[in-house]
Design a protein around this nucleic acid. Structure first.
Lengths: 111, 111
DNA sequence: CTCTTGATTAGATGAATGTCAAGTTAGGTG
DNA sequence: CACCTAACTTGACATTCATCTAATCAAGAG
């Protein structure tokens, strides 16, 4: 037997899981893909209008997404501007490849 | 403004979310990556030994993973053989690309 | 200062989830 | 047949989660 086919280290598995968990909700997927397509930063109000979900709920999801750094915030006066983290646009799909056992150019590190 | 930057349809978002949700747990990530690396099908016992988690829990996770068809089952006598669904190995990372707004060769359809 | 508007925080609630221990089913073997 | 072993199912328990309403906060405008 070549090598014992040890699974992903628990630590790595937990980190990847936390990324997938951030996208394990339809509303958050809408938000992320919205921010990714719309290249410019968006305010909470704009996002609320697009996904048609309560404002506080959207705010909550944005917090979750920014904790994993899928999106980045910048506070401008009375409004907050959210934008996609370009680093994740490339490295997140790579994480999917790692889990699926695909060869990947460089280990994904979103940050 | 070019076009109104409509987010992903709710339906698509929910489908993608269900895929990510299947990998939103460290144990399931370990199982999937284990099956992906270990090219041969594995029995539940082998998987339990590798991830060191209660058998019923592993069985539960395997059920979840096979419901989304990330893994496929085949019952052979007294034991069940689980293997990775090769179709997903390619198409799941593509789903990540879609959400991230990356261009993708062909719409991902895992099945 | 007061009002308005955009955003975060707090609290509540109902639903889903991960885990394990114990019980059950079912294929092989003596 | 009785036994054993691999796997699945059930029930319970504690967590986590998505959503909403209401309350709070912060920045401009009058």
């Amino acid at each position: 037997m070549k090598h014992d086919a040890v699974p992903l280290e628990r630590d790595s598995a937990e980190e990847y899981a936390s990324w997938f968990k951030a996208l394990a909700d339809a509303t958050r997927i809408q938000i992320v893909s919205l921010l990714a397509r719309h290249r410019e930063p968006m305010t909470v109000g704009q996002i609320v209008a697009a996904v048609r979900i309560g404002q506080s709920t959207v705010s909550h999801h944005l917090k979750i997404l920014s904790e994993v750094r899928f999106v980045l915030v910048e506070h401008r006066g009375t409004s907050s501007l959210y934008r996609i983290n370009q680093a994740c646009v490339g490295c997140f799909p790579s994480a999917a490849d790692v889990v699926m056992g695909n060869p990947v150019p460089v280990a994904p590190a979103c940050d």
